[in-house]
Amino acid sequence: MSVWAIRIKVLLLSGIFVSIANWISTVRAGGEVVLPWEAFPALITMFIAIVVGCLVQDLFQKVFHITAPSILFISLVVVLISIPGLSPIAAFVEESFNKVGLLPLCTPILAYAGISIGKDLDAFKKQGVAIVCTALCTFVGTYIGSAIIAEIILRVTGVI
C-alpha cells in the first residue's frame, strides 16, 4: 500500500506544481492566462486516468501475471476517453487538456530529474559529446528511413 501512498502523494504535488508552472508560462508568454485552478479539470482527469491505469496494471500483474509498463495502461485509458464519438467526454477532454501546455507539464518532471541526477553527474559529463553526436544521428536515421520507405511506396503505387 505504501507504493500507492507515495504515488498519490507525488501525483497530487506534481499536479499542483504543473498548474503553477502552466500559469506562470501563460503569463510569461503574454497570451491568454490560464490560472492554476483553471488547469484543475484537466489535471484531475489526468490524475483519475493515471490511477485507473495503474490499478489495471496491478490487476494484470496479480490476476493474469502479465507485467507491462504503467505508461501503456495510462495511455490506453486516455486514448479511450478522448476518441470522439466513442467517448461521451471526448470534447471535454480535448478542451480541458488544451489548457495545459506540454512544456510546463515537463518542467516539474525535469526538476525532480535535476535534483536526482547529481548522483550520476560524472557519467553524464563523460558522455556529453557522445550523446550529442548520437542524437544528431537519430535525426539522420529517422529522416532517411522515412524518406526511403515513402519513396519506394510512392513509386510502387505509381503516385510519382
Partner: peptide
C-alpha cells in the same frame, strides 16, 4: 511518478 502526467497529455493527441 510525475512523468505519468506527461504520458496522459501525450496520449490525448492520439484519440
Amino acid at each position: 511518478i510525475s512523468v505519468m502526467f506527461l504520458t496522459a497529455k501525450v496520449s490525448a493527441s492520439i484519440g
